[in-house]
Design a protein around this nucleic acid. Structure first.
Lengths: 242, 242
DNA sequence: CGGAATGTTGAACCGTTTCAAACGGAGTGG
DNA sequence: CCACTCCGTTTGAAACGGTTCAACATTCCG
């Protein structure tokens, strides 16, 4: 019995394969990309606005977020990246990054030369197809976030985010409504849903008090999934889970 | 002097060519797609959430928007489409639409069989590259909208939107700060920035009173572009205009 | 010209922010 | 092992920005 060395890119390949049909040769090509994995502390920057890095980052374990900052220093988180995600998909086709990417909690990240990845994209349509699909799903999530921030009140907004994360989290058992680890501070949640940390705290409290969720030690539990889903007006269609 | 018949797709091809390097053969292939153009009244639906249409829509003239609706009927506009845009890029790689697309003002729209377009994508990497770039720019705009809605107050939010539209509008002279036609009602602007129509009205009024903009007969004028840009905290980097 | 859609205004109300202070837990050094 | 600090959470009270509702004015369009 010999344990094969697992590429840090398996997460990425699995995710791409789920979303799109990729031949086993193409899978092998992706896994064959030169990559190095590294461990980052919570709050490390992986990409900074204005950068034009020569490497792409892929989450191997942990969580990261993309964010932007206004002229007067207010922060808005514009996306969440989970295991298997390429956090800088932007750089596949655009030259400079227009937002920052930062780890949430400790995070293992694989690095791949941008050029090597780009070469695969032009040479193998099905790989390019898979990445494009991923970008479209990101865009779709982004649209739902706009709806969430623009048209739902604070409590629903947070509930909706928690539903989405539950649905997107990579877990062995597919059933939602289980616990999941959420290595975010309440301030970061606030920056995700466009509220203040104080008000976010009150609303989370009230969700807990009403028994809709549990939130201890960075672990979210959803005791009754259908109830939270209905309350949050959550419809997972926009996630395009196959 | 014989006037050549112009394909309704020239707008699209120009836009793609601006963003990405496309050979003249590929340009010809795109222009050669079978297409039919049609005129739509204001408020016509081009795509509905849940649809899986067999055709893609491209704006030939006019303006359209994408929007989503919450469970209790509140609307949020999640994207704006101008001439040359494929309004249902989603459908290039995903099967079902997760938001609606509706015209704003009268709108000329070209229609292309989805399969024909998809075939071009797999056969010609540079075409696929161009569309992917477009999707990434849309995603980038979406992120900036999140920042705008989440972290800027009502007046700035509207000012920022008006700057963005000025910068994105397809005009002969590239200089911003000129007039542009904006065939939207204030209610639609409200639905774009996540406010009520009443408050939107007051804020637009106050922008006008302070001389930052002019807005008569669906035409926006920006008398002093740098001042509005600074006020709105607008940085066009996220538009990735080449 | 008439009716419907859109824009405008006022006043009361409420959800969210702001500011300030206290609490709790984790990690560090004496 | 305790005292200390740091960071994140919690709570209260007051202020503010944006909403709501309702009425009226204006523009658009058939």
């Amino acid at each position: 019995m010999c344990e094969a060395i697992v590429s840090p890119l398996v997460g990425m390949v699995n995710k791409l394969t789920n979303r799109s049909c990729i031949s086993s040769e193409d899978r092998a090509r992706l896994l064959g990309l030169p990559s190095t994995a590294r461990l980052f502390d919570a709050g490390s920057y992986l990409v900074r606005e204005g950068d034009s890095p020569s490497h792409c980052n892929i989450i191997v374990s942990g969580l990261a977020c993309g964010h932007k900052i206004t002229g007067d220093g207010l922060r808005q988180i514009v996306g969440m990246h989970m295991v298997g995600d390429v956090v800088d998909l932007q750089l596949l086709y655009l030259e400079i990054a227009d937002h920052n990417v930062q780890t949430l909690g400790r995070c293992e990240v694989a690095t791949v030369p941008r050029d090597a990845l780009r070469r695969l994209l032009v040479e193998h349509p099905s790989i390019s197809h898979a990445f494009s699909t991923t970008i479209l799903v990101d865009l779709s999530i982004s649209s739902e976030w706009l709806l969430n921030m623009g048209r739902r009140d604070a409590r629903k907004r947070i509930a909706h985010l928690l539903c989405e994360l539950a649905a997107r989290m990579d877990r062995e058992d597919a059933a939602p409504g289980q616990d999941y680890r959420l290595p975010m501070t309440q301030e970061q949640i606030a920056d995700t849903v466009g509220l203040t940390n104080v008000h976010t705290n009150r609303m989370i409290k009230s969700l807990i008090d009403d028994g809709l969720i549990t939130f201890v030690k960075h672990t979210i539990t959803i005791p009754n999934w259908p109830i939270l889903v209905r309350y949050a007006d959550f419809n997972e269609r926009y996630l395009h889970i196959p």
